[in-house]
Amino acid sequence: MKVLLSAVQEKSFTKASVKQHMSQPAVTIIIGEIEELAGCKLFVRAGNTRTTTLTNEGENFAGVFSKIVAQYETAIQQLEVSVSGKKAWVDVLIQKSFAIAIRGDWLRSLQKTFDGSHVRFHTATRDEILEKINSQDACLGLIDGDTSNLKADSRTILTDQVCALVRHTDFAGKHSINWSDLPSKGIVHTGISRSAQLQIRQALKGVEIESEGYVEVDSDVLITKLLADDLAVALTPSLIGSVLEQEEGLRCIELRGPRVDVPMRIVMPWGRMHSTRFETLSPAAVFVGRHDD
């Protein structure tokens, strides 16, 4: 299984042979044997030559193999820790934009779910977390957006919604507004998934607001831009907006009309989520302002 996965990852049978410390003919023979056992071609042929491009059947087999290998390696690591008596390290990576909204007591509860492991907390960009998860390192990510393309298991903990963060003097007395009520200039928060950003721009386009008038700004300078520049609104998940509105002169307003959902998920490399006890955690208690019913 590792031979096949190496050929896919390296896009070269020669590089796969080096990675697996065997000859290229041996790699070719092993892949041929796997195809024979599977009863189908796993790699696309160019004439009589096997390429490193997977067939549809190959894609399915590679996905299954990846999970099996990940579970095997996790079991080996846990065995080594058990034998040596040393605690393993697990990195918890929190998407930087949402870090301000995470409850400290929830992080302490999360730490307890990793039996026999040391836990280190970090903030990182979404792309950095995706890279870490795909590398199959011992880690957990808390991110927004779609995770279907990751080599990972995921669990949705809640679904947030994009809101309008405005200056206190704007939209006085209103707790919600229509998308069509938004000004022609504003901010789109870039600290969220690209799919959510695209949905925001589609919603603006749907009410005939030129999305070009909405600049992309990350968390570090969002408040400064909103208060100092001629930008009257920032479109951001309400989890973030509800924390930022505590800044003097800002408040969070619900947007009526097209709903832009921002799913928040816990993700771990394949085979690792089963070794934790997430059922003991309350999803509603993850973020500031969210509590159990």
Rank of each mutant, 00 (worst) to 15 (best):
T74L: 11
T74P: 00
A75D: 09
A75T: 09
I76K: 12
I76W: 06
Q78P: 00
L79P: 00
L79N: 13
E80F: 09
V83Y: 10
K86S: 09
K87C: 00
W89T: 15
D91G: 01
D91N: 14
D91A: 10
V92H: 04
L93Y: 04
L93C: 03
I94N: 03
S97D: 10
S97P: 05
A99N: 15
A99C: 14
I100T: 08
I100Y: 06
A101L: 07
A101S: 14
A101Q: 07
I102Q: 08
R103N: 11
G104A: 11
D105R: 07
W106P: 02
L107A: 03
L107D: 05
R108F: 02
L110M: 01
L110I: 00
T113F: 03
T113D: 01
F114K: 00
H118C: 07
H118Y: 11
V119D: 02
V119W: 03
R120F: 00
R120K: 15
F121G: 00
H122S: 05
H122C: 00
H122Y: 14
T123E: 07
T123G: 06
A124F: 05
T125D: 09
T125I: 02
T125R: 15
T125A: 12
R126H: 14
R126L: 14
E131W: 10
E131N: 13
K132R: 15
I133R: 10
D137T: 11
C139P: 03
L140W: 01
G141V: 06
G141F: 05
G141E: 04
G141A: 09
G141H: 04
L142M: 08
I143H: 02
D144H: 03
D144K: 01
G145L: 07
D146Q: 07
T147K: 01
S148A: 11
S148F: 10
L150H: 12
K151M: 08
A152W: 05
S154F: 10
S154Y: 13
R155T: 09
R155A: 13
T156F: 01
L158K: 12
T159E: 15
D160M: 03
Q161S: 14
C163V: 07
A164Y: 09
A164W: 08
L165D: 03
L165V: 04
L165K: 06
R167A: 03
R167W: 06
H168V: 07
H168M: 14
H168T: 08
T169A: 09
F171A: 06
F171T: 04
G173H: 07
K174R: 15
K174Q: 15
S176H: 11
S176W: 03
S176Q: 15
W179M: 01
W179Y: 02
W179H: 03
D181V: 01
L182I: 02
L182F: 01
P183G: 04
K185Y: 12
I187G: 12
I187M: 13
V188T: 09
T190P: 00
I192H: 02
R194G: 11
A196W: 08
A196C: 11
A196K: 07
A196S: 15
Q197H: 04
L198N: 09
Q199Y: 12
Q199I: 04
Q199E: 15
I200C: 10
I200F: 08
I200Q: 10
I200D: 07
I200H: 09
Q202H: 13
Q202P: 01
A203I: 05
A203R: 10
A203Q: 06
L204S: 04
K205P: 00
G206H: 11
E210I: 08
S211A: 11
E212C: 04
E212W: 05
E212V: 03
Y214S: 06
V215K: 13
E216Q: 15
